[in-house]
Structures are given as structure tokens and as C-alpha cells.
Design a protein around this nucleic acid. Structure first.
Length: 260
DNA sequence: AAGGGCCTCAACCGCCGATTG
DNA sequence: GCAATCGGCGGTTGAGGCCCT
């Protein structure tokens, strides 16, 4: 049974790719596609491992790769998505056509992280705390399941640094509050949400009970999810703008001046 | 001009979930 | 059901270029 042993690295080349290797890889994939990455280098006549070939193709040789500096808009998008998704580079990359996860990861670590840190330092003042001080987690977001309703203390436990941790938190909450919330009533927003035509967002409106609260309801495959932002919440500050811009795609809402 | 430190980014590493036999 | 591989992901590394003194 099973396949040939994996990672037979003996005799395989490492390090930077030559133009000859690039040409071999490109012409092979153009002719045959990349059915099996592990078998590809052998079939193409490359002394590389399949992983190396895959990486080279995805990050550099693919025809629709966009080279060159990131635009300000792209950088802003990365920052916003990172606030919500955390270090899920591939998910962020999927929202930036022509950009790869590796490229985005690099630009984050070399430029954007510093940019955020600098702006936070510059915007610090006795009357205005830095964002990091006002927000416990960089991407914390207040989510409310439309039905059933949760108390504010219950909601605060659904604060997360990424969608992945959000899933974990919901699992935790489910185990703690089995009668209050179910996974079915609190659907996960993942990558498919952003492109899934079944998902839709209604425009934001102030809560009737609390005018400082802004609600957005999202229909995900028939399940309604409410995003709730409140001035009273230390976690929501700024994030309603993020949600709104990302979900509704409006450029009208401006991020706070100290955001960057 | 030299060289030391910093920055950038392509590539590698190791892990994990999915898939396969 | 189990074991092994595959594909994909995020973290890390290091060579080379750039900048500053």
C-alpha cells in the first residue's frame, strides 16, 4: 500500500532558484499542470523537492502574480484584515489579487508593523491613550449572536484575536453555556464568507435600546449574525469601521486618525 | 572608501489537517 | 481504523543590498 517515502532530500538542491530552473518549472506546469507536487520535480527534471517547486511557483512564477511595491490601499487593506483575521496570511492574501501570503507576511513584518507602532507612539498623549492600551487585543471584535441574546459579560468572552481563536472561544462558550448558545446559531465567518454570494450584510443602524450601539446583521446561508458595536465597549473602538468597510465595502467611513 | 549594522525578501522548516491505500 | 503521504500554512532564517558613520 501507500506511496513512496516522503522527503527524499539527498542530492536535492536548495537555495535560490536559477532562471534555467524557473524556465523548466514554468514550461512543465504550462504543459502538464501540477498534479502531484512531489512527483513534479522528477518528471520535470529538476533537482528540487516538491515543496520547493510549489513555493517557487506560488510565490514567484504564477502568471497573475503582481510584482512591485504595495499601494497604500493594499497596505490599508492588509492592516484592516489583520485586525480581524490575525496572522492568517493566506486568508489575507486571498483578498488581495496577485499578492501572495509570503509577500504579505514580509510586508507586514518589515513595514506595517513598524508603521502601526510608530503611529501608536506618536498619537500617545496623557488625554488619549494609545490604541494598544485602549484595546486589549489588536483585533478584538464584539460579536453578538442575534438569537439567542447574550448578556454583556457573556459577550465579552467572545472577544478574540482572530477568527480561529473566535472558533475556539465559541467552543469554550458552548461548553460553558450549553443552553444559551449553539454553534448552529452562531455561524463561523471564514474565508468563504467574504466571497460567498449566499452571505449578505444589511446596513448598520443604531440599537433602539441603546443609541450608542450600532448593529449590523449578516445573513450567512440563512443564519443571521449580528455584529454589535458599542461606545461603552473597550473592545469595539474602531472595529465597527473595520467591519463596516470590509463587509459592506463602503469607503465612506473613515478610520480614526490615530489608527495608523 | 571601508566596514559594520540594518533591512528586505526569497526560501526553508516544521507542523497540521486532509487524503489515501 | 490506522498509518503514511500530501498540500498548505505560519514562523523563521540568511544572503545580499543598502545606509550610516
Amino acid at each position: 500500500m501507500v506511496r513512496a517515502p516522503c522527503c527524499e532530500k539527498m542530492g536535492l538542491k536548495k537555495g535560490p532558484w536559477t532562471t534555467e530552473e524557473d524556465q523548466i518549472l514554468v514550461s512543465y506546469i504550462q504543459q502538464h499542470g501540477h498534479g502531484n507536487w512531489r512527483a513534479l520535480p522528477k518528471l520535470a527534471g529538476l533537482l528540487r523537492c516538491g515543496k520547493s517547486c510549489r513555493l517557487r511557483w506560488i510565490n514567484y512564477l504564477q502568471p497573475d502574480i503582481k510584482r512591485g511595491n504595495f499601494t497604500r490601499e493594499e497596505e490599508d487593506t492588509i492592516i484592516r484584515l489583520h485586525q480581524i483575521l490575525g496572522n492568517r496570511w493566506s486568508a489575507i492574501a486571498s483578498k488581495l489579487p496577485g499578492r501572495t501570503d509570503n509577500e504579505i507576511k514580509n510586508v507586514w513584518h518589515t513595514h506595517l508593523k513598524k508603521r502601526l507602532q510608530n503611529k501608536q507612539n506618536v498619537s500617545s498623549s496623557p488625554k488619549q491613550l494609545p490604541r494598544s492600551a485602549r484595546k486589549p487585543e489588536p483585533s478584538s471584535t464584539h460579536l453578538t449572536a442575534m438569537s439567542p441574546q447574550l448578556s454583556s459579560s457573556e459577550m465579552s468572552s467572545i472577544t478574540q484575536t482572530s477568527m480561529k481563536s473566535a472558533e475556539n472561544n465559541r467552543s469554550e462558550l458552548k461548553s460553558q453555556q450549553p443552553d444559551i448558545i449553539s454553534m448552529e446559531s452562531f455561524p463561523l465567518i471564514d474565508e468563504s464568507f467574504w466571497t460567498d454570494p449566499m452571505s449578505s450584510v444589511s446596513s448598520g443602524e443604531s440599537s433602539e435600546s441603546d443609541p450608542s450601539t450600532l448593529n449590523f446583521s449578516i445573513d450567512i446561508d440563512g443564519s443571521e449574525l449580528l455584529l454589535e458595536g458599542s461606545d461603552n465597549s473597550p473592545n469595539i473602538d474602531g472595529n465597527m469601521d473595520l467591519w463596516y468597510n470590509l463587509l459592506v465595502g463602503s469607503g465612506d467611513l473613515e478610520l480614526p486618525p490615530d489608527f495608523y
